[in-house]
Nucleic acid binder design. Structure first.
Lengths: 266, 266
DNA sequence: GCAAAAGTGTTCATCGTACACCCATGG
DNA sequence: CCATGGGTGTACGATGAACACTTTTGC
C-alpha cells in the first residue's frame, strides 16, 4: 500500500534493515584446519561472508552483515554500507540484487524488524577482510559447511534462499563472470560452475564445456586474449579470455548440463 | 541486520506496507467498450486487479490493492487482508508469493514507506469484485493495456516485475493450473499459456502442446477424467483433465516452446 | 456431408553427449 | 620423452517441431 500525497505523515510501524549474503569462489583454504581434506574440495570453494558480533548475548553465533536503513538511504546503498562497516569491504560496483524480505513478527525480540535480504557476488582474490564496528570476526565460510544452528535469527533462511537463487541464476545468466578476474581461463570458469552447481562438472569434457558458451563466443561477449596463463603445476596452461557482455542478460536456452552432472546418455 | 535479543526495543524507522498484484486469466471482456477488438484478443485475457481510491488527491489514478502491515501480522496475512478489504475478495488458499520490496526514499511523500509487493494468482470465473473501504472502483484490467502513467507511486514498477516473474515462472513451474478450474481441457490450458506468454501458441499444433506435458501425464499429476466438455460453438469438445500435483514443483526441463512462438525450423 | 476443432502417431532436423585426436607444459 | 592437462573435431542418440491422419461436433 501507499497513500495519497499531501496527506499527513504516517506513523512508522517497523524497523527496516538490510542483510547481505556475499558469495565468492576462492580456493578452499587448507590452512587453519590443517589437512582435513579428502577429495579435491571444489565444493568448499563456494564461500559466504559471515561476521561474529561483540554482543555477549550472541556468543558463538554467526550472522550476515547488516545495518538499519537510514531515513534517506536506498536499500542498495544500505547493503553496500553494511559490507563497508561490518567487514571493511568497499562494495562499490559489485553485483548486488535484492533477494527477498524477511519480516515474521517474532523474528527479532526488539520489535518488528523487517529485513530486506540482498545477494552480492564478488571475486575475493584481492580482498582483505577486517572486522568492522561491533564485529569481532569476519570470515569466509564454505557455503556447504555453514551450520544452520550457528546462525542468528532467520539468517539460515536467508542463506538458503541465496543459495537457491544463485544456483538457478547461474544457469540462465552470466552471473559466473562476476566471480572471475578480468581475464580468466576456461578451466577457471568451469571451477566456478563446479563449485556452485555440481563438482561433477570438473570431470566433464573440456570441449563440451566450451560448446555451452558457443553463443557467447559468437556474439563476441566472450573473447580470447593471448595464450599464456602462467603455467600451473603441470599440463598445458589454459587460454585466457575476457568477458565483455551485459551481466544482466539471459541465455536464449538453458545451460546444457542439468543437475546430476554429465553422463546422462547411454 | 537484526540485533541481539534482550536488547532494548528499537525505534521504528519506517512504515511497512504490502501491495498485491493479483493476476487472472478470463475471457477478454467485449462489454463496456463495445466492439473494439480486431483479432481474437487472447492477449487481453491476462488481467490484473486494480483499484481506484476515494482520495481526491488521486483523481484518476489506479493502484494495486495494499494495506499497512499490522504489528503482529505476517506479510502473507496482510496481503490477503488487502484483497479482502479493498476488493471484497476472500483470498484464503490462493496462490501468493512475495515479489520484492520497493523502498526508494522518495516513493511516498508521507514518510519512508516500504512496500513488500506480492504476486497472487487465481481463476476469476466465480469471483465478484466489489469496492472495499476507501475504494470507489475495483476492476480487472488487461495487463497489456495498463497505462503505466495511470498507476500511483511505483506501482508500475511492481506490475512490471510481476509480469516478468509470472512469465518466467510459467515456464518452469505448474503455475498455470492455478488459473484454471478443477477440471479443464487442454485447449483451455493452452489459452492460459497463450494469454501470458505468446498468442502464437494458439496456432501451435495440439499434439505438440500435449507432448510438452508428457512428464506430468507419466507421473499422474495430470490425469484425464471423462470426455465431454459441453461442446462449444463448433468442433469437437476437448477432453477434461484434472491436475493433482504439487503446485510448487518445477519441471525437470524447460518448456519446449521458447519465445518467438512456434515455427522455428525450416 | 462439410467445415472446424480436438486428439494420435510418425518423420525429420537439431543439439547435447561421448569419444578420439592434437597441442603444450613440467619433470 | 612421458605423464598430465587444455583444446579441437567428429559421431551417435535423444528430443522438439512439423505434418499427415483419425475422431467428434455444429450447421
Amino acid at each position: 500500500m501507499s497513500d495519497g500525497p499531501g496527506a499527513p505523515k504516517l506513523e512508522p510501524n517497523a524497523v527496516v534493515a538490510v542483510d547481505v549474503v556475499l558469495f565468492t569462489v576462492r580456493a578452499a583454504k587448507a590452512d587453519e584446519d590443517g589437512a582435513t581434506d579428502g577429495p579435491t574440495g571444489i565444493e568448499d570453494a563456494w564461500q559466504v561472508l559471515l561476521v561474529q558480533r561483540e554482543d555477549a548475548a550472541f556468543a558463538g553465533k554467526w550472522s550476515l552483515p547488516g545495518v538499519l536503513v537510514r531515513a534517506d538511504e536506498t536499500f542498495d546503498a544500505a547493503a553496500r554500507r553494511a559490507l563497508r562497516t561490518k567487514a571493511r569491504l568497499d562494495a562499490t560496483g559489485w553485483y548486488l540484487e535484492q533477494l527477498g524480505t524477511f519480516g515474521k513478527p517474532e523474528r527479532d525480540t526488539r520489535g518488528r524488524v523487517v529485513s530486506v535480504a540482498h545477494l552480492a557476488l564478488e571475486r575475493s582474490d584481492e580482498l582483505t577482510l577486517a572486522p568492522g564496528g561491533g564485529i569481532v570476526r569476519a570470515s569466509w565460510v564454505p557455503v556447504r559447511r555453514v551450520p544452520a544452528e550457528a546462525l542468528a535469527f532467520d539468517h539460515a533462511d536467508m542463506l538458503r534462499v541465496a543459495i537457491n537463487r544463485t544456483q538457478s541464476k547461474l544457469r540462465y545468466s552470466w552471473l559466473a563472470f562476476q566471480l572471475l578476474p578480468e581475464t580468466f581461463t576456461l578451466p577457471e570458469l568451469r571451477a566456478v560452475y563446479a563449485a556452485i552447481l555440481d563438482p561433477a562438472l570438473l570431470r566433464l569434457n573440456t570441449g563440451n564445456f566450451k560448446k555451452a558458451f558457443a553463443p557467447l563466443f559468437a556474439s563476441g561477449a566472450l573473447a580470447p586474449v593471448g595464450r599464456r596463463a602462467a603455467a600451473g603445476r603441470v599440463g598445458r596452461p589454459g587460454d585466457l579470455y575476457r568477458f565483455q557482455g551485459p551481466l544482466a542478460g539471459t541465455w536464449e536456452r538453458e545451460l546444457p548440463w542439468h543437475e546430476g552432472g554429465p553422463g546422462h546418455a547411454s
